[in-house]
Design a protein around this nucleic acid. Structure first.
Lengths: 162, 162
DNA sequence: AAATTTGTACAGTTTAAACTGTATGTAAAT
DNA sequence: ATTTACATACAGTTTAAACTGTACAAATTT
């Protein structure tokens, strides 16, 4: 009956930890997966995770792949073991912040570029204009939105250096 | 045919801007709603938004309510107009960052408290232990998770002051 | 080489989120 | 006081996300 106690405590931790992880835009499965993996002392196989979380192996496969893609989880080799083993990256703060901040910078930058393209289009439109219409206001708002993207990008770049 | 041109440009902006807004955990409707509202020069009614975004008035109502709840959108009064009028808060960076950072701080803090409760439970468990089991490792990991929450909270508090 | 074990692609199902139309209570207008 | 116009609660529907089981290719074991 002691294993049950331990499992109960583990579950409670997973539930709370997951809530935070979901704020990083992990979906529920990914969050639980990471949390469980982190709490485990040793690397785990897809089958073990499937068993523990009560979800299909396919789900584990896709979930682990997502987490690996963003470097939150690492595949690990152990001689004599055929199955893939995975473990959570142990540097919680560093791993998550690094990934998240970069995601923000990249997104802000990319969308800013797209918006600058649109701005170009507007200005071009304003040139050969029949003067019947006024795009000036739209462009003014657009400029503010671009500036917003700039500020977001700068903020996260600053955080990156801290 | 000039209105069509303008609408086309507006749509392009909305699409790009929305992507950024969704990174703040707005859902698609909320993002588009805010973007459209921001681009509009004047406050809009639910019916106007419904018409413009091609979604039901009920959707507008719930979407606007969400945005109002977090202070991204404000209700506005104009004499002689019976319908509710809404406008986007014009201080993009300030509004979004303020809201988002507070959300993070609150969440990190709250989950940290829950985790501390669990830690208490574990320590209590360890006392009247039949020694048959070892929760030490679990507690070690839990401590690290709590520390993670601490660091997240501190980071966002720092950002808040900049 | 044959047989077994593994991860994952894919089609189909289940579950949850998003959305709509009707109904209702409230406030303004007549 | 009656009528009209409005926002939203709610039940039901549609759409999208999450999940599963089967099948298959790659790798290992026999």
């Amino acid at each position: 009956m002691n294993d049950a106690k331990r499992e109960n405590l583990t579950n409670k931790i997973i539930i709370e930890f997951s809530k935070t992880l979901e704020m990083f835009n992990l979906n529920q499965l990914e969050a639980r997966l990471f949390a469980y993996l982190y709490l485990s002392e040793k690397p785990l196989t897809l089958d073990e995770m499937s068993e523990a979380l009560g979800k299909s192996k396919t789900s584990m496969s896709t979930g682990i792949r997502s987490l690996s893609d963003v470097n939150l989880v690492t595949r690990v080799w152990k001689k004599g073991i055929r199955k893939d083993l995975y473990q959570a990256n142990s540097q919680l703060f560093k791993s998550f912040m690094n990934w998240y901040i970069n995601k923000w910078i990249e997104a802000a930058n990319h969308q800013k570029d797209s918006l600058l393209e649109i701005d170009k289009e507007i200005r071009h439109e304003q040139d050969n204009e029949d003067a019947s219409e006024n795009l000036a206001n739209l462009e003014k708002q657009l400029k503010a939105i671009i500036q917003f993207h700039n500020e977001v990008e700068i903020l996260f770049r600053d955080i990156k250096q801290e």
